[in-house]
Amino acid sequence: MTPLAGRSDFAVIGRIVTPKSRVLDLGCGEGELLEWLIEQKQVTARGVEISPARVRRAIARGVSAFQGDLNECLTDFPDNAFDYVVLSQTLQETHQPVRVIEEMLRVGKRAIVSFPNFGHWSVRASMLFTGRSPRTQAFPYEWYETPNIHFLSITDFERLAENKGLRIDHREFLTGERRITWLPNLRAEVAVFLFG
């Protein structure tokens, strides 16, 4: 199997998704993940992307992507239309994350969510020592230009899952390509959750 280039969480998502399943990727970008899943796992793929330039490249790759706002598009889909609904590194950019998660589980049997971990030690240190909004590798933006509006840590997400009764089937934590098992909320930059 050819490796999946691009973001580290793609490789995890690529492992989770089962062959010939139906996958919806919210915020599919230029369709790299879906293209790989189509080729390697023969999935039925759909993508939603708000940027016209990115959706154009996704379609040029052969991915059935459409331009639109993910909330609006999610509302349109019928119940249980997909086996997996993927939200890769976008949850922290949504206005109503809980609503998005609920909708993902309405249109899909299971959801795969990845996000940058705001509990990482570099974020804590950045805030503690500079007294300013943290800027790290995973959070590279100035406060006034960041697309991130809901900062969450791994512990935050697990609390939410508990409160909402989400069944977490798989969790994986990464720093770069390296898997983190010990103290993930302190040591992992990116978290991937599979839940239903």
């Binding site: 759909r46 959706v55 379609i59 459409f66 639109g68 889909f77 019928p78």
Partner: peptide
Amino acid sequence: IVRTLRRRNHDVAYCELP
């Protein structure tokens, strides 16, 4: 057209070109 197809979970790609 796209929304109608999406509601039926049809295979549809859509782009508005500038």
